[in-house]
Each structure stands twice: as structure tokens, then as C-alpha cells.
Design a protein around this nucleic acid. Structure first.
Lengths: 245, 245
DNA sequence: CAGTGGTCTAGACCACTTC
DNA sequence: AAGTGGTCTAGACCACTGC
């Protein structure tokens, strides 16, 4: 008998280890969203490597949109609170090509027990509670998006309908500023569905109209899922845009 | 009066210029999809720069999926003819999570005059002709996708129904091997629509069922659009998957 | 002008593939 | 053993920002 020698923890370059350490600092909120991190020289000294090695680590974290480099200024922790990033995860766009200014109206914000589906997506234990939010988004006065959101109660304790409606700007900016939770990436599953009576009422359209159903799981540092969304888009005058590379 | 000094052709680093030259070689088909390009050392000599500079250029082209690096072997021109890349642009996946094996049936392949919409997307002149293809894709015997494809006749001259149905594998691999055209990226616009009679017949489902409408423009080197697709997906047992970063 | 990120170099050595 | 890409270093200099 001969054994195959599988490389278990094979080779890990220095810059990978430094990425891990920087990630740990982000996760530990040592540097907050929007803040500068130490300069490349400082980090090189801290980790006892050359500037080039720190550079490569930062390059890759910047490519993943965790950090943002600004020449002459420094390297910053990515945030959803800046102009270009306000709607980083929004793929809906008007067919006309005009600018998209959505207004948001929150309808409800209730604490409930997570059902099996939501619980498994959020990796919660049976019996854990979630916050369930409903909202409608409108463009030029027309309701276009009906959206349900589920959040783990543990992380988003004091969130209520009043503070949601008092907030102006993207929800992900609110999560950052109020709950120290930065969304790093998300996965969406898209289907076509027919409007039922509830959706028809919210979106002011006839029952049976085809709508885009978009289920999103959003993740913070360390691939931790912390938000579920289920949106329905009226795509009669707008569309979902995607780039394939 | 004071003039604002807009930097017109400001600063362009060496590695950008080398990227441009490598891109030119790809576009000129000096190196074909799947082939090795010269080693970093050779390119460094050719362009009279250091290996590190060539390296950075190649790194960025590899990040854009134009090149593929393989340690110990060399750097290769990306191709749709390899296992992992076979369905690089396919975002449809079964709800069940099982493996997705699609069979393709081409229905027609006709030369027609491009309508205004298609012509403008393909940047054709008025009067230019296109090849119009219809096909149905099935999974486990069930028709799931109805797809129309438009191609500029000029580039895809001898394409006919017989050769399409004789081909086994992704269409983008056929474009590469028969028409020296490699697809680099694509843009999709997605809507929900109701099945009309034609779609209902092709997909064997009732009229009115909500379907996903996916309009794709695919580009080759130099951002040149060379293929339009309009697909309709039955999303009752499968979904469109997307990752947001 | 000092400090930051960005570019470029030259050279040593490592990891992987092939012959 | 030779050739490829991959890592790491040290140092020089450039481009941009802000005091």
C-alpha cells in the first residue's frame, strides 16, 4: 500500500499571513470604516517585513473592496457612507438611463422567531429571534421595490421603525454607523414571479404582473452572514444590470 | 479670466503601456486562445523593462481574465475551451444544488437585416446583415432556456444550422475555434416577463408564466461588441445567481 | 516641504513543471 | 537540471496631498 501525500497546510507566503493580520484588525474594529489605517511603512515595521510585502497584502485587500487606497493621503477602511459607494450593491437601473433617485418608506419593523430557512441562512440556532422589516422604495413617486429584510436581533438590538424612517441614506450606512457592521459582499438568487395580492397592493399594479424576485444574503468580515433580503422589483420600466468578466 | 488646467493625457506608468502592447498582440491574434505567451523574462527583454514591470502588467491582465498564469508552465491566453471555463458566463443554477448539465438544440440559423436595436448594440451600419439563431436548452429532458442570438455576418460568415448542431460544447468555444473570436466580457440586463404563446410552446409551459428575460451583449478584445443574446429562463426550478463585491 | 501611496529596478531565492 | 512563475528585499525616485 502506498499513501498519497496531500499537502495539508502547504505553502503560505508572507503577504498572505499579513492579509490575515490586517483582516483580523478590521474584524476587531481596530480601524473603523472610513478611517485611515497605518501607512505602509508603519505596517512594514510592525510586521517586520519590507514595504513591498505589505503593499502586496494591501493590494489584494483593496481588490476585494475591503480597503481603499488614496495616493498622497493613505489607505482607508472601505465604507458604504461615501458618495460613489452609496449604492454599491444596487443593480437596478432605469431603462431610460436617467439618474436613479430612490426614496425609501419603511412599513414595519418587528421582532419574530426566525423560520428554518432564515435561521439556516443566518446560521442562527433554533429559537433565535430576528428583526423583520418591510419597506417600499419609489422612483419619481412610483413604488418600484418591495423589500423584506431579516436581521439577527443579537447584533441589531435597538433597531426600530422610527430610527429607520429617520435615517436618510443607504441602510448599509446605517448598519455601519449604528451597529459597527460593515457589509463586505453579498450573494443574490434571482427568479421571475407573479405579483400576488400583497405585492400588487404595495407596488400599485395588477395581480399577476411578472416581478423580479431577488433573495440576498449579505456578509460582513469573516464571511459571516448578517442580513437576508427578499426584494421584488417591478421591471416594467427598469432592469437588473449585471457585468460578467 | 483664469483657465483650469485639466490634465489631458496625464501620467501613464510603464506597465500600462506594456499592458497596451500585450493587448495589441492578443487582438492581432499573435498568440491564440489556449497558447502560451512568451515568458516574463523574454517579454522584459522585448520591451526593455525589468521583469517586475512585465509582471505587474500580466498580473492586471490575469485579473481581468485575459491571461491565465500557471506556475512552472507559463502564462496562457484565456480560453472558453477549458473545463473550469466552459460555462464562465452562465449564471443559471438549479435550486436543488445538483450539477447542471444542459443539452442544446438549435432550431434555426438565418441571415437577416439587423433591426435598429440590434444594429446599434453591435455598432453596425444601417443595412448590415446579421445571423439570427434560435435555440432551446434542456436540463434532465425539460426545456428551460429559449435563446435568440444575433451575430454580425461579416465576422461569422459560414455559420449554419448544421455546424451549430454538430458542435458539442459551449458556443463561445465554437466562436474561438472557428472564427478566432474570444469573448472577454459581457453585460446583461434582466427583467421579469410573462410567457407569450411562442415561449410557452418552446418551453412547454402555460402562457403567462413569469420568465426571466436576459439580454446580453458580449465583447471581444478592445471592447468590441460581437454578439447579442436574448434568453428567457424558466426559473420555477432554477435561479440566476449573482455575487456582489 | 514632509508624508503618503505609486513606479521601477536588480538581484536572490523558492515552488512547481518538464525533460 | 533547466525553465517557468512566485516571493521577498532594499533602494531610488515619482506623483499627489496637505500643512
Amino acid at each position: 500500500m502506498s499513501e498519497v501525500n496531500l499537502p495539508v497546510a502547504s505553502f503560505s507566503p508572507l503577504y498572505e499571513q499579513i492579509k490575515v493580520m490586517i483582516l483580523a484588525s478590521l474584524q476587531a474594529a481596530e480601524w473603523l470604516p472610513g478611517a485611515v489605517i497605518p501607512s505602509e511603512m508603519e505596517l512594514a515595521a510592525r510586521y517586520a517585513v519590507s514595504q513591498g510585502t505589505v503593499r502586496k497584502a494591501i493590494d489584494e485587500l483593496a481588490a476585494q473592496n475591503l480597503l481603499v487606497r488614496r495616493q498622497g493621503k493613505g489607505t482607508f477602511v472601505a465604507t458604504h457612507q461615501e458618495d460613489d459607494w452609496q449604492y454599491r450593491f444596487l443593480r437596478l437601473a432605469p431603462d431610460s438611463g436617467e439618474k436613479f433617485l430612490l426614496t425609501s418608506q419603511f412599513l414595519s419593523c418587528l421582532k419574530t422567531k426566525a423560520n428554518a430557512h432564515i435561521a439556516s441562512l443566518l446560521k442562527l440556532k433554533a429559537g433565535d429571534t430576528v428583526i423583520h422589516i418591510d419597506r417600499v422604495q419609489s422612483f419619481a413617486g412610483k413604488p418600484i421595490v418591495f423589500e423584506e429584510i431579516w436581521l439577527p436581533t443579537a447584533r441589531f438590538k435597538e433597531l426600530d421603525l422610527y430610527s429607520l424612517n429617520a435615517w436618510h441614506g443607504p441602510v448599509y450606512a446605517l448598519y455601519e454607523s449604528q451597529y459597527a457592521t460593515h457589509m463586505v459582499r453579498a450573494e443574490e438568487k434571482i427568479k421571475a414571479v407573479a405579483a400576488d395580492e400583497i405585492l400588487a397592493r404595495h407596488l400599485q399594479l395588477p395581480v399577476g404582473v411578472p416581478l423580479l424576485s431577488v433573495e440576498r444574503v449579505a456578509f460582513t468580515y469573516g464571511n459571516k452572514p448578517v442580513e437576508i433580503r427578499h426584494a421584488r422589483y417591478d421591471t416594467r420600466e427598469q432592469h437588473y444590470e449585471n457585468k460578467l468578466n
